[in-house]
């Protein structure tokens, strides 16, 4: 792996509500290396989407970034990294990063594109925000090239289409063209495949892989779909209740999951090793609501390896169990020591 492009350190985000403060993200740290895809996996409400937004400093009120750093190592690692969270969220400095160096696509391609602006308008806008010297005609030509690159048939004709005239898969591709217009170094994809059906999903994943090869960009891919993660990423970050519970290379995580949560997650997926008619594993209980989280380890109330007096006493640290394979579980206390 090449040097790191983005480094998230101890990121914490909370949502003050009338019922109390929801700590959506707690001291989350991970790295995105250059030209690499990192997958973030976790169930709904684990904080993965709001983490993604924090990377661009676009967490919306009442959400609040309580602490941490998002360090961007630009210029091929030369020079000092810059902390994106230290910039004013509405200032000019952070806007130079948004779209230009870090682009983002969101879950629902239907609502991500404006219903009253043409696809071409939205692509050209992405180009011209960051490069005012580009003429309207030139931006149009580049938009056609982008639509061609993301595999949209009849790209010149599609420039003047509105999002509701495109199919789901085409919309997702058009969105991709909008995101890639300013040639970002990092693409954050928040559940991009969730709203499209499986056959189109596979084609879209192929497209992302191809674009990454051609453009040498890094991708942070957020999903709850373990199958998608396996297919696309080299590094996996597993999140549960606003914390990173396991990080490692994809082969290691899939072959030797360390955290009990990850282990159970993998056993809940049907595969060729599970004999037919044996029931799939389940994780007992449900994700606790944000106001009644268990003390200590966030997974302690559902964990089959729960140890009283240890797991409910403190939040375990992230142990480096193997080289570049970390897990947040007291089971690995001695291994690390």
């Amino acid at each position: 792996m090449d040097g790191k492009l983005l480094e998230v350190k101890d990121l914490s985000i909370s949502f003050p509500t009338e019922a109390g403060v929801i700590r959506a993200v707690n001291e989350v740290s991970f790295e995105v290396p250059r030209r690499t895809t990192v997958g973030v996996v976790g169930e709904s409400g684990c904080g993965k989407s709001v983490t993604a937004r924090a990377l661009l400093n676009i967490v919306q009120p009442p959400g609040r970034i309580d602490g941490g750093e998002v360090l961007f190592h630009g210029d091929d690692g030369a020079g000092e990294p810059v902390d994106l969270l230290s910039m004013a969220p509405k200032g000019a400095a952070i806007r130079h990063f948004r779209g230009k160096r870090i682009a983002m696509i969101f879950q629902d391609p239907m609502t991500c594109l404006s219903p009253v602006h043409t696809v071409g308008n939205q692509i050209a806008e992405s180009i011209r925000i960051h490069d005012r010297d580009v003429s309207a005609g030139e931006a149009r030509d580049r938009a056609v090239a982008l639509l061609t690159e993301v595999g949209i048939p009849n790209p010149a004709g599609r420039l003047d289409s509105y999002s509701f005239e495109l199919s789901g898969g085409m919309r997702q591709r058009a969105l991709m063209a909008v995101a890639l217009a300013a040639e970002p170094e990092l693409l954050i994809a928040d559940e991009p495949t969730t709203a499209i059906d499986v056959t189109i999903q596979a084609k879209f994943l192929d497209l992302i892989g191809r674009l990454q090869d051609e453009r040498h960009m890094s991708i942070l891919f957020i999903t709850h779909d373990l199958g998608v993660i396996a297919e696309i990423s080299r590094v996996v970050v597993v999140m549960y209740l606003g914390r990173v519970v396991e990080v490692g290379r994809v082969e290691e995580i899939y072959e030797r999951p360390l955290h009990p949560y990850t282990q159970l997650l993998f056993r809940s997926i049907p595969n060729e090793h599970v004999p037919r008619k044996t029931p799939l594993a389940q994780i007992k209980g449900v994700v606790p609501d944000p106001f009644s989280r268990p003390p200590g380890c966030p997974f302690s109330d559902r964990c089959p390896s729960f140890v009283q007096g240890t797991c409910d006493a403190a939040v375990p640290p992230l142990y480096e169990v193997e080289e570049q394979h970390h897990a947040r579980c007291f089971l690995y206390d001695e291994v690390d020591a």
């Binding site: 130079h96 779209g99 983002m104 969101f106 991500c112 992405s126 925000i129």
Partner: peptide, 26 residues
């Protein structure tokens, strides 16, 4: 609160410009 506003923000559009161009327009 719709995604296209968030998308516009993530593109690096200035806040006042994006409010006028997208949600106000609709």
């Amino acid at each position: 609160s719709k995604s296209y506003v968030e998308m516009a923000r993530a593109k690096g559009l200035r806040e006042t410009v994006l409010i006028m161009k997208y949600p106000v327009r609709i």
